[in-house]
Design a protein around this nucleic acid. Structure first.
Length: 421
RNA sequence: GCCCCCAUCGACUAGCGGUCCAGGUCGCGGCCCUUUCAAGGCUGAAGCACGGGUUCGAAUCCCGUUGGGGGCACCA
């Protein structure tokens, strides 16, 4: 039988990174096995539904590169089918009415067990499982009733979900056997915690996929990083692109223990992917990010400055802070200019009629100037950097000056020389 | 309280009875390179939670303890 899996987020907000993680495992498994990956929206709780959520969830999934098969389905559309089945269960004595609601009769003896792909055999004594409301008094089916039924109706072969669903599993297993259907294989993948070992929440900063996108992480970084949270192909490999991930993914190697989300390692990995990009592609991603985040900077200039920062930033969001001086005026800090007046004046003179005005010539001229003033490169270039870029940290000085052009450079040099006194 | 899950360096993990005085990656320390910041090179510190078993032999298997997490809704 062909593999068919699904993720079933509820439309209560943006796609959470934990949901993205289980979506990834589902997707990797499905694609690796040549099966189907489906998207189902569990919207039976209309009171908590957020209107834009359904679109946002799909946007995030697409951004991550997780494509799904078939149309998006909605749990609410199957309410009637659920209700009919519930009534049938009542007629068969497997469920009963209770204050207007319908409750499922769980077995009182024995155990309910399954062989979990990542955890092995899990057994729960039936006496510890309470009779479950399957249809509310207002007629809407509950999650623990609708979800397993939909898995059956959709022909889901493997239910891959977060381990917070482990305690739901015996309930759902009993419901499935009550309707005499085959049970799918279950795989409960580990949850993701914040760096303090607690469930990932607002307190930890970014938690929705969109947050990471806005923070300037690449989708390929997110995919690689998330895949490694709870799974590893071996003990050596860290950087794996989409194709390699797909080729090597193995559900049975997913770890049962929860993983902490380490933002520092994420930053490192994003830097790796950023540096790996061909220069034109890097510039393209930069432009996309700038556009999505309200920057209206000239594409041509962005493209020309991009190579100067590609090796220096870990997130696209660092670009404005790092290369902003190419796009607007600077305000050098007085203290950072202190004592730099002689070099500033000498640089002004050296660059005023320099030809050609390119990085190589600029470097030669400035080094020569520094020599004549008896300054070490470090002492000589820092005031110039501050004057020209407005910051003590910048892309390569000489390349920056070339791109900035003679006119802007000289005027910034002069303004700073005046300020330095 | 009851039920369930988890347990290797600070973090992510490799390890599935001997090849491990435990390997890789991030982070951290040191050195080198260097116009700043990065990047890069070399290098160092750092771990099998504890206690019992089983076995000739245990990080690996079993039991218990401790610690962490999740669930116990007419939420999903």
């Amino acid at each position: 039988m062909a593999v068919r899996v699904r993720i079933a987020p509820s439309p209560t907000g943006l796609l959470h990174i934990g949901t993205a993680s289980t979506a990834l495992f589902n997707w990797l498994f499905a694609r690796h096995e040549g099966g189907e990956f489906r998207l189902r929206i569990e919207n039976t709780d209309t009171s908590r539904e957020v209107a834009e959520a359904v679109d946002q969830i799909q946007d995030s999934l697409r951004w991550l590169g997780l494509d799904w098969d078939g149309p998006v389905t909605f749990q609410l559309d199957r309410m009637d089918d659920c209700r009919r089945l519930a009534e049938q269960l009542v007629a068969e004595g497997k469920a009963y009415e209770d204050e207007g609601a319908i409750r499922f009769r769980m077995p009182d003896e024995g155990v309910t067990a399954w062989d979990d792909v990542v955890r092995g055999r899990v057994e729960v004594r039936n006496e510890t499982i309470e009779d479950l409301v399957i249809v509310r008094s207002d007629g809407r089916p509950t999650y623990n009733f609708a979800s397993p039924l939909e898995d059956v109706w959709d022909g889901i072969t493997h239910v891959i979900r977060g381990d917070d669903h482990i305690s739901n599993t015996p309930k759902q297993l009993n419901i499935i056997s009550a309707v005499a259907a085959d049970v799918p294989v279950y795989a409960h993948v580990p949850m993701i915690f914040g760096m303090d070992g607690k469930k990932l929440s607002k307190r930890h900063g970014a938690q929705a996929v969109e947050d990471f996108r806005a923070a300037g992480y690449l989708p390929e970084t997110m995919m690689n990083f998330l895949a490694l949270l709870g799974w590893a192909p071996d003990g050596e490999t860290t950087i794996m692109n989409r194709e390699e991930l797909l080729r090597r993914f193995d559900l049975t190697r997913v770890s049962p223990s929860p993983a902490q989300f380490d933002y520092r390692k994420l930053d490192w990995m994003n830097g790796v992917y950023l540096r790996e990009l061909p220069p034109e592609e890097f510039a393209h991603r930069l432009l996309l990010w700038l556009g999505e985040n309200g920057y209206d900077w000239p594409a041509e200039l962005v493209t020309r400055t991009a190579p100067l920062v590609q090796e220096k930033i870990a997130k696209l969001s660092e670009f404005p802070g790092f290369a902003g001086f190419f796009f607007g005026d600077v305000e050098p800090g007085q203290a950072d200019l202190d004592g730099g007046a002689p070099m500033l004046a000498a640089a002004d003179e050296a660059l005023a009629s320099l030809e050609p005005f390119d990085a190589t010539a600029i470097e030669a001229a400035l080094r020569d100037t520094a020599d004549r003033l008896g300054l070490k490169p470090r002492q000589a270039f820092q005031p110039i950097r501050v004057a020209v870029t407005g910051s003590r940290v910048s892309p390569g000085l000489f390349e920056s000056i070339e791109l900035l052009g003679r006119e802007t450079t000289l005027s910034r040099l002069r303004a700073a020389a005046g300020a330095a006194g």
